[in-house]
Design a protein around this nucleic acid. Sequence first.
DNA 1: CTCATTTGACCTCC
DNA 2: GGAGGTCAAATGAG
Length: 244
Amino acid sequence: MAKRDDYMTSSSGCPNGTHKRLLQDCSSYTQEHTKNRKVRLSTRTEYTYAPYHDGYQWRKYGQKMIRGNSFPRCYYRCTYHQDHGCPATKHVEQTNSQDPPLFRVIYTNEHTCSSIHVSDYMASAIHIQQIADASLRKAEIGISSLTHCGAGHRLIKDEKDAIVSSLFTVINGCDVATLDVGHAAMQENTTARMASSCHEASPSISPVLQPASSDLPMDFVEPLEPQWLEPLDLGWFIEYTQTG
DNA sequence: CTCATTTGACCTCC
DNA sequence: GGAGGTCAAATGAG
């Protein structure tokens, strides 16, 4: 973990005036960073309601109002940036004022730290939740006009089937027998997510990005509908997978 | 006391 | 010179 002391060591006790010199001393480091920016290997943009819970641990290192945006952009880097030299960073911007707000997250560089191995399943669970949210939202739109007839129930079943299909796509390779753990993780993170949605710049203890499944259809990935529903209870999914 | 966040200053790029 | 990105002292929470 990056220690604050790592910075403090080089600048603690810094009298007035010395600070400026120290900043100049680190200019080479900044330049190196700038060079890195030029040879940046990968960037990825995602839209999410849960920008702070992507499976990795991040440390916020800055915030800036961006021209033309109503909301500030927050800058995060991997918690293991210092310890393991992990180059991963992300920028989080709120894109609207809906409840909960939608965020644009720009990921830069891949993680070289090992944190992904600790919590990637958690990220999978979160990703599943997001997919389910988006899918159920679509179902809600259709159901709203069919609530008093059998068609609504059929639609629900159809949507469940669609969600199950998508979930299997996402957790492909996961041991289904561990789903109980996954479900618990999902509920826990849902709670955290709902809490975090109240702040535009909430704590960055978050976690890992499950590599976005590019195989998924975009209408499952992009939660652009203005409506918001309570997080989906996936208990039925657990039951579904256990009973066949 | 430790550690994460905040925030103003500074840097590089265009 | 403006804008975006980063640094690091100050601050606050646990």
